[in-house]
């Protein structure tokens, strides 16, 4: 993490119905970070990926609650301080697409208003089992004015691009809000300090 100390650090979260392939997308994106033969304690830093964008290194801290979807109550704390959210559905599963609305609702309630979103349709490698057309996905994204992309975690198609699009969207948005420049340095230590600042600061 040391080499990006003075560059940007974004906190991203991946959400979506269980089995939509969230963990696969993350695994694929971090491909060069660890092998399929991952050790017992899954690498502590595989959720941290740096991305090169216009000669600038952007650190992405990706939070994923894969496997914990049933612990519904904990998710709300993950949305706090998020800079970007990736909403994943499975193009072969109608139910997972139906839930997209629910996730957008959830974000508007839980996440900070400045958060950027991207809608991602996963599993394009299963074209013959496709139930959700690209158009439907695009429409859903347009109605929420957020970018949209279809990926395949299995083949790796578009996975990196999806994260880049999310970062682009964030850059775009942060330009509009010049008043609130978000420097990563200040955000290095995430939850604790920001939490403290918000709540503790006023209390004593």
């Amino acid at each position: 993490m040391s080499n990006v100390s003075d560059s940007l650090l974004l906190k991203l979260i991946i959400i979506g119905r269980s089995m939509a392939g969230k963990s696969c997308i993350l695994l694929r994106f971090c491909d060069n970070k660890f092998e399929s033969n991952l050790g017992f304690t899954i690498g502590v830093d595989f959720r941290f990926v740096s991305l090169n964008k216009n000669d600038e290194t952007i650190g992405l801290q990706i939070w994923d609650t894969a496997g914990q979807e049933r612990f519904r109550t904990i998710t709300s704390s993950y949305y706090r301080d998020a800079d970007g959210v990736m909403i994943v559905y499975d193009i072969t599963d109608e139910n997972s697409f139906d839930q997209v609305d629910h996730w957008f609702d959830e974000i508007s309630k839980q996440a900070p208003p400045s958060v950027v979103k991207i809608l991602v349709g996963n599993k394009t490698d299963l074209e013959n089992k496709r139930k959700i057309s690209t158009e439907r996905g695009l429409n859903a994204a347009n109605s929420r004015s957020c970018p949209f992309i279809e990926v395949s975690a299995k083949s790796g198609e578009n996975v990196k691009k999806a994260f880049e699009m999310l970062v682009d969207a964030w850059t775009e948005k942060s330009k509009q809000h010049i008043t609130k420049p978000r420097k990563k340095k200040a955000r290095q230590k995430i939850t604790n300090e920001s939490f403290e600042k918000k709540d503790k600061g006023n209390c004593c």
Binding site: G21, S23, L27, I42
Partner: peptide, 16 residues
């Protein structure tokens, strides 16, 4: 348990 469930999911999808 959520921690172990996450481990299981990643082990499950990260290995063939």
């Amino acid at each position: 348990l959520g921690v172990y469930f996450t481990d299981l999911v990643f082990l499950g999808s990260g290995n063939k």
